[in-house]
């Protein structure tokens, strides 16, 4: 249960790690836009995106298998979309006499798979190089304009960082409770779906109760230190864009331009 790579920070002191989180979040969005801009069957555009991922991974000094392992979590989803595309794509010529799998179906399945893989790779690069705290800070800063419509931006960011902070704690707690119930003969591995779902009750209820207890304790601890929300709060770590961020912006602009150019220039 502890091998959840999607959303796990990989600490390092690389170029990418030192970038402003706001710029990285925007760059991730720009990257996703670039992936979606790639028009049907222009796999050259995907190659450009993949090249970008590879270069960024190298610049971030993150082992490439760490980036790749984020795909594990969505393999089933990818497989399902590919199969659906294969079987339900209309048009194109069948691959064999009387078969219902067409060449276009195959192409569009490959297209979908490539698109999902690239999006997930890029998104996991963001979370691998940006700590949860930085991410929350970045999102808070990016959402600041929403304060004009009275949206509680700071509180929203706080909720996010607390949720992120408690993921490892909850995983540990789950592990403990699962062991305790296993010692009392609980069986989580056999039986049908309903039986297994029912077997989870002795884990979920204690987990829920302890989460409430933790929330209470945290609220008390924050109260004790006179926490009062966003008013007059300053930051210990200020986000200041540097030359790195300028380079990041330029690279992203180049990527999007490149993809658009490939779309228009390459005949297909």
């Amino acid at each position: 249960m502890k091998d959840v790579t999607f959303g796990q920070y990989y600490p390092s002191h690389s170029f990418v790690h030192k970038m402003d989180p706001r710029v990285k979040i925007l760059a991730a969005i720009a990257y996703i836009v670039a992936v979606f801009l790639v028009q049907s069957y222009h796999f050259v555009g995907f190659a450009a995106c993949l090249l970008f991922v590879l270069i960024t991974t190298a610049a971030a000094k993150v082992p490439f298998f760490r980036v790749l392992s984020s795909i594990k979590a969505i393999l089933f989803f990818v497989f399902l979309s590919a199969v659906l595309q294969l079987f339900f794509h209309k048009g194109g010529t069948p691959l064999w006499e009387g078969g219902f799998i067409t060449d276009e179906g195959l192409l569009s399945a490959g297209f979908i798979v490539a698109r999902i893989f690239l999006v997930v790779l890029g998104a996991s690069l963001l979370t691998l190089t940006t700590s949860p705290v930085e991410l929350a800070d970045g999102i808070e800063s990016l959402l600041t304009p929403l304060k004009w419509i009275k949206f509680p931006v700071h509180e929203f960011a706080l909720i996010m960082s607390i949720a992120l902070r408690f993921i490892p704690t909850l995983l540990d707690e789950t592990d403990r409770i699962v062991k305790a119930q296993k010692a009392r003969g609980a069986d989580f591995e056999s039986g049908n779906v309903f039986k297994r779902a029912k077997a989870l009750i002795p884990v979920l209820i204690p987990l829920l109760i302890s989460s409430f207890r933790r929330a209470d304790e945290l609220a008390d601890a924050m109260d004790a230190r006179c926490y009062a929300g966003s008013k007059h709060r300053t930051k210990y770590k200020r986000m200041v864009p540097t030359y790195r961020d300028l380079i990041g912006v330029l690279v992203m602009a180049a990527l999007i331009t490149g993809v658009v150019l490939i779309n228009t220039m390459l005949p297909f």
Partner: peptide, 29 residues
Amino acid sequence: RALRSRVGMVFQYPEYQLFAETVREDVAF
């Protein structure tokens, strides 16, 4: 399963493993 019924294990803060509606139900688990 047979082993676990012969070797009982009480973890740290065992009260955090309680989940049932009544004490009787929990002990019966």
